[in-house]
Amino acid sequence: PASVPAMAAHCRTALQALGVAPPYRVLAMSLGAMVALAWAHAQPRELAAAVLINTSLRPFGAFHQRLRPSQYATLLRLALSDADAAEWERSILAMTSRRCFEEAEHDALLGAWTAWRRECPVSRANALRQLLAAARFRAPPLRPPVPLLVLASARDALVDPHCSRRLAQAWALPIAEHPTAGHDLPLDDGPWVAQQVERFVCTSKAL
């Protein structure tokens, strides 16, 4: 879909087709977190809770904060060139992770990501639609009546963590910020994410 609300509607339809009934508990990152917010706004009774990781949406961040200018050239090159699956995933990993991998672990990760991309390729048009949908999306005027947790990465090279901080401040949401992780926070420190989610679930109505 070419818009974030349409993406949320697509998720709802897919879950219904699978026979998975609400309420849902959603862990969502970046553009996915925008989709979770659109879903929480449109159908708040369907979501028991949502964790929003390294998201960036208007009006809680300027354009250059929502997508750092240092990454424009790389994203445009990938979207407009004929880069193969391995080059796509190598570039994405460099943009989104701050983790120091062992060589074997790094190669295994890229191998898995590349295999997934070849199995389910992302078209150039779809990649551009995602960028356009993210750029257009604006937060709901009021905080959705769903328990929300914000997680951010202090060393995010793709999105300025200021966007997450402003969102949490504006809506009085709990927030935790990882001091060294990059944009792909679950990849860089999955156990830390799990700890934050567990604490959130135990201290909110997310159970």
Rank of each mutant, 00 (worst) to 15 (best):
P144V: 05
V150Q: 04
Q130F: 05
A181M: 04
D107H: 07
W116E: 11
A181R: 05
L148W: 09
V159G: 02
V26P: 01
H178W: 09
A85C: 01
L173I: 03
A206K: 09
Q169E: 06
R118A: 00
R155M: 13
P191S: 07
V51Y: 10
P144T: 04
C202L: 13
L148F: 04
A154V: 03
R166C: 02
S81T: 08
C120W: 00
A108T: 04
W192S: 10
T96R: 04
E46P: 01
P147I: 14
P69D: 08
L151N: 11
A115S: 07
R129Q: 13
L132Y: 07
L31W: 06
W171C: 06
L76F: 10
M95P: 03
G61M: 15
A152D: 11
P140I: 04
L151D: 06
L75W: 04
V122C: 01
R165H: 06
H162F: 07
Q71Y: 08
V20Q: 07
R199Q: 15
A38R: 08
T180Y: 12
F60E: 14
A85T: 02
L207Y: 12
P1W: 00
V146N: 12
L109R: 13
A40M: 05
H178F: 07
A73Y: 04
V122I: 06
D160H: 14
H178N: 09
G182Y: 12
L31Y: 11
Q195Y: 01
N54I: 06
A134G: 12
E177I: 03
A38I: 12
P1K: 04
W113V: 02
P1F: 04
W39D: 10
A50I: 01
Q43L: 05
H183A: 09
S204M: 03
A9R: 15
Q130A: 03
